[in-house]
């Protein structure tokens, strides 16, 4: 337990080390980053090795460098890999938009408005993410099959437009609740109704939460193997995670090289989206401030 006096002492000692900590901090962050990234670096290096050397030469540095895994992996499946990237991109983009709209609406109601049975509905909302999906998948499949939605993107996208990702509702509820109520009241005094408050006050101040929602939805949808594999079975509809698994055959011969190469290709869009989203992630109250 640190006491305030400790803190004061710590502060007093601080200036002595002023220039050094910065460098030390950088070095620590870099060293730690390298450890974190080792598996990833191994994957990158393997993707440039001739396939038969991947397991024969397990080291990080390739003795032979080749682009074959990329060129072969790109065309190894029925369609070129770009085709699967596009399929994934469509589903992912729709999911991001859907989650942003539907979850923020629901979150605002839960965080700021009062209505009958609110606690019950909130518990139901949280409860809906507590059941392992393996047992709901069969009834769900039966339902979507009745809707004749198999082999369309609807089973993947429509639920998101209906705010079934309770995770994000809860996330935004928590963020909205960190905002002082005075903001809403000030808006109310200016004559703003609920909708106007929502759009003019809550949404702009919740940029970090929205960015988080956007980034996570993007990543999780992009990587979601399970439901995409189940609902999009036609080989023309496959998405990236499903396509990636096709390089592997647990009883026969796996194409590890192309799999690593295409994994890296498919990391591109998510990483790009993260970089872009990051800007909004840090543009919260801290920078916009209280108006």
């Amino acid at each position: 337990m640190a006491t305030p006096s400790n803190a004061v002492r710590g502060k007093a000692a601080f200036p002595l080390f002023r220039p050094a900590p910065r460098l030390v901090k950088h070095l620590l962050l870099i060293a730690f980053g390298l450890v974190m990234l080792y598996p990833l670096l191994w994957m990158v290096s393997s993707s440039f090795k001739p396939e038969e050397l991947i397991f024969r030469e397990p080291g990080l540095w390739p003795s032979q460098v080749t682009l074959d895994n990329y060129t072969e992996g790109w065309v190894a499946l029925k369609h070129s890999f770009g085709y699967y990237l596009w399929n994934s991109a469509v589903i992912t983009a729709l999911s991001v938009v859907a989650n942003l709209v539907a979850c923020s609406l629901a979150a605002y109601a839960f965080a700021r408005l009062d209505f009958p049975l609110k606690k019950v509905w909130f518990a139901v909302m949280l409860g809906s993410i507590m059941l392992p999906h393996h047992v709901t998948v069969v009834p769900q499949y039966i339902m979507f099959a009745k809707f004749e939605w198999i082999n369309t993107i609807w089973p993947l996208v429509v639920p998101k437009f209906l705010a079934t990702d309770a995770f994000f509702i809860f996330l935004m509820v928590q963020f909205i609740r960190t905002l002082p109520r005075e903001l809403d009241e000030a808006a109310a005094i200016d004559g703003a109704g609920y909708w106007k408050t929502f759009f003019r006050v809550i949404i702009p101040l919740c940029m970090p939460a929205l960015a988080t929602t956007g980034i996570f939805t993007f990543i999780w949808t992009w990587n979601d193997f399970f439901s995409q594999n189940l609902y999009l079975t036609n080989s023309d509809n496959l998405t990236v995670p499903v396509a990636l698994r096709q390089f592997l055959d647990s009883s026969g011969e796996s194409s590890w090289g192309p799999m690593f190469a295409m994994s890296i290709v498919s990391l591109g869009p998510i990483f790009g989206f993260f970089l872009a989203g990051q800007k909004y992630l840090i543009r919260g109250m801290a920078t916009t401030g209280l108006k």
Partner: peptide
């Protein structure tokens, strides 16, 4: 307020 809340919650 309650009515508005249910409108916000309609998709959910």
């Amino acid at each position: 307020e309650a009515r508005t809340a249910y409108v916000f919650l309609a998709p959910w």
